[in-house]
Every structure is written in C-alpha cells, then in structure tokens.
Design a binder for these strands. Structure first.
Lengths: 172, 172
DNA sequence: CGCATTCATTTAACATGTTAAGTATCTCCG
DNA sequence: CGGAGATACTTAACATGTTAAATGAATGCG
C-alpha cells in the first residue's frame, strides 16, 4: 500500500491530457512486467552465483531435455530471438557448456547440444532453482498458480492471430 | 496451434538428467514472458511508427498524468532501473519531448515533466494505443482480464517480502 | 565547522532485445 | 546445370536490462 508512490490518478492532474487513458500502472503490460520481475528477482541471485544469466539458463534447460536441436528450434523453445541466441551460443560454446556441429544433410543448419560440463552445471543449479520455485508455489498457492498459468496461456492464445496493420503489409 | 514447436516433453529424452525438472516451457517465468510478449507485439508497430520504444512510451504516459516528478520516483512509476531511465531521459530531452530542471531545495534532484511537444505526440499515439487495448480486452474478455490482473497483483504481493539468501547479506 | 556518511543521479561495462542487413547454403525451375 | 529465390544463421547497430562504480550534493554528528 504505502509502497506505491502518490497515486497519479488522484490529486491535481494538469491539463496535459484530453483523452482519459487508463492509469498506466494498471495496464496489462505493466502488470505482466511487474509480476514477472517479482518472480525473476527470486532466481537471479542464485543463477548469478553460477555465472549464468536468465537467458543462458533457459537455453541450458531447453537443451537438457533433448539430444540436439537446430538453432531455429532452440530459439522457439527458449523464446529468444535469433540474434540474441546467436550471441549467447557463441559465449556458451566458448565456456564449453554446449557443443555445436553442422548438420550433415544441410550445411546451413547447426545442431546444438549440451556438453558434459553443461550437464554438471545444471545439476549444481537445479536444486536451488527448484527450491525457489517451490517456495513461490507455496506462497502463491499451487492451485492459484495453475489457474494463473491457464489464464496466461489463454491470453497468449487469444492474441495469436491478432496482427496490427503493419504486420499485414509485411506478409507478402 | 501449429505454431508451437514439437513439444520437447514428448519423444526421446536422453539420459542427460537425473532430477526431473518441470518442463521449462511451462514454468511461470516463461508463461509470463510469453504472455507479455503476445501483448506487446500488438503495440510495438504503432509505437514504432511514432518513433517511440515501449519504455519511452511508458515514461511519457507516466509524465502525462503529473506535473513533475523526480527521476527516482519516475523510475518507480515507469518500472525502469535508474541507468535505463537516465539514458532514456537524455534522449527524450534531446528530442524535446520532456523538460528537466534541478530542484531548488535539493540540487541533487532533477524534476522531470512532459513538454508541449510530448503532449502532442501522446495525443497522436493514444487513440491507436487505446484501440489496440480495447481489441485485446474484447478478445480475452473484460472480466477475465480483470481477474488476470488481480492474480498478477496477488502474485507480486505474495513475493514482495521474499528475498534470497544473497539479498539478506547485502542488507547491512 | 569539518568530515564521514548517505542520497540522487549518472556513467561504465557487459548482456540481451529488436530490427535490418549480410553470408552461406540449399531448392527448384527453366 | 545454373541462377533466382528461399532458408538458416550470423553480424551490425541501436536501445534497454543489470550490476557496479563514480560524481556531486545534502546530512548528521562530533
């Protein structure tokens, strides 16, 4: 309560605006951003101790469950854009946490897999990570958590086909 | 539907792991990230047309509802870290979208406000932005949207006091 | 008053997000 | 088979996220 700054919706609002816009602190993007930050804040210190960023950890986790993947599919799985993934893979490879080899059939494709060292690092991080997740679940409630995830999935789904006019142009 | 890559939870999983970890594509951070991205994807093209990034838009919106704020409070309101805000304010000032003046009582503080040009730009962007938000609301459902935001707020709240061991050390 | 401490903001350094362009490879059709 | 177009990935360029350190100004206390 007292944490929030003086609520800008009340008090003396200057004549700066005509159109009444939603108090932006309650907009959906902000709600999602704050919620995600609240969650990630719990994980970052532990990851940091192991020299991993959130995204690097995402990649390792994605790789741990699979033999090898093409970069493009890994990007989808870890929800990273190509350029970000490209940079991160370069660094992870330099740290010997992953391995790469070009596909035989298609020289363009590169198959990525987690290395033995990568597996070891995951094993070191996973317990803490799981404990944090468990604590979050405990605090928020397992049922509510499931409900929330369900709603998030629906939101994502309901916007899947929505594209702005700009995108439509770029369709070709 | 067909957009999602082959579900990594099925198929041949190598012996890479001992500890069964949640399929990470269903972890809470990923759910939140994907949901937020689905939402922001709708807004970015419109903002881009006006030469604004998501964060710049957040700042303008925060400023529009208030006379002037200190940088630190603006950071809280727009949910940006100090360094990010500092850079963005420098750029927005160069574009004459905001104004700054150091506080009289405390030379350290800088009071930020939106400029006349900034107001004009907001007026140009707001209609499209509101229309997009309305469409999102229509698709997802107003009631469900309210529920979702409620849950997100609860999640944030339930993690407010949770701090990892690392943070505790830094308390002093 | 003098100075160590705190505070507000900025700068620095590195990592990622985002879009556009580049490179190498493959595919397919004439 | 050969070159236009598609595809997989990388590089480039700019903006932000993130943490640490620096700078400049206020505060408190001896």
């Amino acid at each position: 309560m007292s944490k929030r700054p003086a609520d800008p919706a009340n008090g003396s609002v200057p004549a700066a605006r005509q159109v009444p816009m939603r108090d932006f602190s309650r907009s959906l993007p902000m709600s999602l951003l704050r919620a995600r930050e609240a969650v990630m804040r719990q994980f970052r210190p532990s990851l940091r101790e192991h020299g991993l960023t959130e995204q690097q950890w995402r990649i390792l986790r994605a790789l741990a469950a699979i033999e090898a993947v093409e970069v493009t599919e890994l990007a989808r799985t870890a929800f990273l854009l190509g350029p970000s993934l490209s940079r991160i893979l370069r660094d992870l490879e330099a740290r010997n946490l992953i391995e790469r080899k070009t596909a035989k059939a298609d020289q363009r494709r590169s198959m990525v897999s987690i290395s033995k060292e990568g597996v070891k690092l995951m094993a070191a991080v996973a317990p803490t990570s799981e404990a944090i997740y468990a604590e979050i679940t405990r605090r928020f409630g397992a049922r509510k958590l499931a409900e929330l995830q369900e709603m998030l999935g629906e939101l994502e789904h309901s916007l899947a086909g929505l594209r702005s006019a700009d995108d439509t142009l770029a369709e070709g």
